[in-house]
Design a protein around this nucleic acid. Structure first.
Lengths: 130, 130
DNA sequence: AAATTTCGACTACCCGGGTCGTACTACCTG
DNA sequence: CAGGTAGTACGACCCGGGTAGTCGAAATTT
């Protein structure tokens, strides 16, 4: 039911979801308009993708007059969780700290980000125990 | 040339690479044997995959007698880097700290991992300057 | 030498993400 | 009312990851 596979989204699919998450619902052409700048896709491409995504169960639509109003069925949190989890399990055998370690040693974080990270950790000091 | 697309590996491909990285080279059947436990794949599947991967440029082979000895052409570091980078750019608009933040707030780290992470950060205190 | 195993080559699929072109239909507008 | 417009439906492809069967040649075994 709450299949985690539904949370694995391709690039375009994720971009479409971002639009849907931002606004809380949108028509195909609104999505198309929103993505036109970064990708130059045909309107039908978006429509087709939305249809496939609906079949997959990640979005839903309601008909209003002539047009379909799409609405996300999965939460951004869930998708991120599952995609990150997937990557961690593939690349780091499920060890999330190994990922952080990777970010640090591979200098994916610059000095400034590094500091922010430390601050964040300090802040969340009292979490995890209950 | 050093196409970053070559560093995007599928699940099986990554598993195969892990074997190749561990040993420094291996035949198709050695890889197959190594992966037989976790995945129950036919030997031909591995062979086909290796061929595809060679076409893609991530592995290489040398003939010894009549068997192919495969050797990785891309480094594990590079692949991890590029795959993590890709995910971060898709899911977090390139903000790596947002990923760490995600790990923390979504409780992807348990108490024990959390401590290790803090220790690691303390340890790496003097990095980031070059 | 004959039979059997081994291993690569080739081929064929399936599936899902992605990209559209075309067709059809309801609608609006001159 | 006719013609353009908007918006969905349908179907066609491409591509790459993944899975594997079959075939033929070479090596090994009996």
């Amino acid at each position: 039911m709450n299949d985690t596979r539904q949370h694995q989204l391709g690039d375009l699919q994720f971009a479409i979801m971002r639009v849907l998450w931002e606004r809380r619902e949108a028509t195909a052409s609104e999505v198309h308009a929103a993505l036109l700048a970064e990708r130059g896709l045909a309107p039908t491409t978006i429509a087709t993708m939305l249809k496939k995504m609906e079949a997959k169960g990640v979005v839903d639509h309601r008909t209003e007059g002539r047009r379909f109003i799409y609405r996300p069925l999965v939460q951004e949190r869930e998708v991120r969780r599952s995609m990150v989890r997937d990557l961690v399990s593939r690349l780091f055998q499920g060890d999330a700290t190994a990922l952080v370690n990777h970010l640090v040693t591979e200098k994916e974080l610059d000095r400034e980000e590094w500091l922010r990270l430390k601050a964040m950790l300090q802040e969340g000091e009292d979490q995890g125990n209950e």
